[in-house]
């Protein structure tokens, strides 16, 4: 270690890996439904895509986590995106391609992808 800059670089690199444990930081959360129904419908590749994209783009303020069955198994794989205020956007029938677009449009640019979102009709029929 010969300079402070070197330390700062190392710190940033390590911090990125640990960001998840920083509970007070304001972050968006991507929650993938990973119950049996979700996994059967293909939630795992969706989840992996989210994790990969987050890593690739170096998004430190986003947490990817899983949850259980939301009860609307017919709409799986489902994904909830929570913004920093806790507002929820629900995406249904997800796949890896859609996941990439959610990252690019919703997470990075703050524009929810309306076409993937759950509709009132779907919610009522499920």
């Amino acid at each position: 270690m010969k300079s402070l800059a070197e330390l700062a670089a190392l710190r940033q690199k390590s911090l990125d890996k640990l960001n998840m444990r920083n509970e007070d930081s304001e972050r968006q959360r991507i929650v993938v439904g990973m119950a049996t129904c979700g996994i059967a419908a293909g939630a795992r590749p969706v989840m992996n895509t989210f994790v990969e994209e987050v890593n690739k783009r170096n998004l430190t303020d986003v947490a990817v986590s899983m949850t259980g069955c939301m009860g609307m198994c017919v709409l799986e794989p489902m994904v909830d995106v929570y913004d920093t205020k806790g507002n929820k956007t629900t995406y249904v029938h997800m796949n890896p391609e859609k996941a990439k677009r959610v990252i690019a449009e919703h997470i990075v640019n703050g524009q929810p992808v309306t076409e993937f979102m759950i509709t009132a009709e779907e919610a009522n029929n499920a």
Binding site: L7, L10, R11, K13, S14, L15, K17, L18
Partner: peptide
Amino acid sequence: INPENIDEYIAYDGYQALG
């Protein structure tokens, strides 16, 4: 942090004070 990993200590401002 993981006490056996200096990187994690550095991530939480470790060795900043010394610097």
